[in-house]
């Protein structure tokens, strides 16, 4: 399993826990439109949980340019390998 796949597994857990609408299976192309309950309120909580897990901080520009899960995993890879 490569690093990005592992990150998506971690994200599945975080999303499932915060959105609380049953098990969530993410893939790189998943967007907010694909998941019921991934609204702006949950989005902020998800980002805070990711920051806590990986011990880094997002910037506002980074989160505002996110389009899908692939973008999110790319930032996590970049931040954790820096």
């Amino acid at each position: 399993m490569n690093q990005k796949q592992q990150i998506i597994l971690d994200l599945n857990e975080i999303f499932t826990d915060i959105i609380d609408e049953g098990e969530i299976m993410l893939n790189p192309e998943t967007t907010a439109n694909d998941i019921d309950g991934w609204d702006s309120l949950n989005h902020i909580q998800i980002l805070a949980a990711i920051e806590k897990k990986y011990t880094f901080k997002f910037t506002l520009t980074e989160i505002q340019n996110l389009k899908n899960i692939d973008d999110l995993t790319n930032i996590i890879v970049q931040k954790t390998s820096a």
Partner: peptide, 21 residues
């Protein structure tokens, strides 16, 4: 409002948890 007011504000206060939201 979500993109230009709520998200930057909530993001800046994300360490406050639910209170920030």
């Amino acid at each position: 409002m979500n993109d230009y007011i709520f998200t930057p504000l909530a993001f800046s206060k994300r360490d406050w948890g639910v209170w920030g939201l």
